[in-house]
Amino acid sequence: MLVIHCPYCQADRPELEFANAGEAHIVRPDNMAEMTDAEFEKMFFVRQNPKGVNLERWRHIHGCGRFFNAIRHTVSDKFLKVYKAGESRPSDAEIAELMK
């Protein structure tokens, strides 16, 4: 069982309080209706599922109820960073720094 730091509760909480919500930073465009089929496919169906650093969404569903983003290493299960929904994606340089 993981321990996850909730950026809204500002505390470590047991994994049992959370639900994973898939890959982070997939933008639902304002002009959804105008997307091409290829764009829609990419947005809705295609996921990275990397071995290594994964940017993912979690919801503190049995806690404060908020969705937030996390950077987790899928091999070590270590959380490198958590941040609130709506905050921008950390740069690759920043992620590389967190990896150290």
Partner: peptide
């Protein structure tokens, strides 16, 4: 409810 919260909070 989760589906609604997801859209409300993140989109």
């Amino acid at each position: 409810l989760n589906h609604m919260e997801d859209y409300l909070q993140t989109e």
